[in-house]
């Protein structure tokens, strides 16, 4: 018996649109059952990468396999093992939630095995993605977040071995987000390999045991959320008022910084010491890549106050 191939493997993956090179050299291996978040600024090529892995685009160079097959040449049997949630959909507006899932589910019936029931029973699935009671709703009458949940449901319909989610929680309210996180966690218990993109770093940290950061055409960071934090930033930000005047400082050694601060005269109030967040680490990293700088991240002195709030726009 041949060993099972990794869920996803790319080597020197390249993608070029006309003269613009979007992916330069993406080399990554993702094992079965891993939950991986692909991060990167707008236009970094996340969607491009995911669509290559889904078989919807042919890469300009390099090798790529998903479940041991080349996606853009793989057949329908391969297709049945892969679940896809694209970044945006607005198809089948006149269809109703229930009939739409029932219809698409028919195609998976041939792929059921004694162990795995396929398709995922529609009523259960609708409940699981939080669309209970909306079975008869027309798709074009769903709200943005509801629509997204339906897209996730379609991705899960065939109980895929590998699931691609491109910004699955864009437009979710906090409750929907939490429900979705639970759903993803229950899926990873089922040994589904999941690759998702998100602009929400808290979400990435919650869901994924591994983060990939795509910037400048290649993977610039690959590791657990803690790895990324530690690698990028040993700094902490210190913030306090002395005699009413605000002081903010970012330092690698907050303890001695504070010791000095207390040694000086004046009343210190509102003292706050914060470890660098994942978000800071991420932004520092991306900034480094974009400016081509290779300096110590701490020297950028980026402070939370000055950070653009990326989560807002996500």
């Amino acid at each position: 018996m041949t060993p099972t191939p990794p869920a996803i493997q790319t080597r020197h993956l390249q993608m070029q649109y006309g003269a613009t090179r979007v992916l330069d050299d993406v080399t990554v291996t993702i094992g079965r059952g891993e939950v991986v978040a692909l991060l990167g600024p707008n236009g970094a090529g996340k969607t491009t990468t995911i669509e290559i892995l889904e078989g919807f685009r042919v890469p300009s160079g390099g090798e790529v396999t998903v479940l041991g097959e080349t996606p853009h040449t793989a057949g329908e049997h391969w297709r049945a093992r892969v679940g896809v949630v694209l970044q945006s959909w607005r198809d089948h507006g006149k269809w109703r939630v229930g009939e739409f899932l029932d219809y698409l589910g028919m195609y998976y019936a041939d792929y059921a095995t004694p162990d795995v029931q396929r398709p995922w029973p529609t009523t259960d699935l609708i409940e699981r993605v939080g669309l209970g009671g909306k079975t008869l709703r027309r798709l074009d009458r769903l709200s943005g977040g509801e629509r997204r949940r339906l897209d996730v449901a379609v991705g899960l319909l065939g109980r895929p071995e590998v699931l691609f989610l491109d910004e699955p929680t864009a437009g979710f309210d906090p409750q929907a987000r939490r429900d979705f996180h639970e759903l993803v966690r229950s899926l990873s218990d089922l040994d589904t390999t999941i690759l998702l993109t998100t602009h929400d770093l808290t979400e990435a940290e919650l869901l994924a045991n591994r983060l990939l950061v795509l910037a400048g055409g290649s993977i610039v960071a690959d590791g657990s959320p803690d790895d990324l934090r530690h690698r990028m930033s040993a700094t902490a930000s210190v913030r306090y008022r002395r005699d009413g005047q605000l002081h903010t400082e970012s330092t690698e050694d907050p303890v001695s910084h504070l010791r000095e601060a207390f040694a000086e005269p004046g009343v210190i109030q509102d003292l706050e010491v914060r470890r660098a967040s994942l978000e800071e680490a991420y932004l520092t990293l991306v900034h480094q890549v974009e400016t081509g700088a290779d300096t110590d991240p701490a020297s950028f002195g980026i402070l939370p106050d000055e950070l653009p709030d990326e989560r807002e726009g996500a």
Binding site: E54, Y107, Y108, Y111, G158
Partner: peptide, 20 residues
């Protein structure tokens, strides 16, 4: 219309759905 609204792409994500 179906090309522009994603109906055909949806069919591509499901096995044999394009033929159907």
């Amino acid at each position: 219309t179906e090309r522009d609204d994603g109906t055909l792409l949806r069919a591509k994500t499901v096995p044999h759905a394009m033929t159907g």
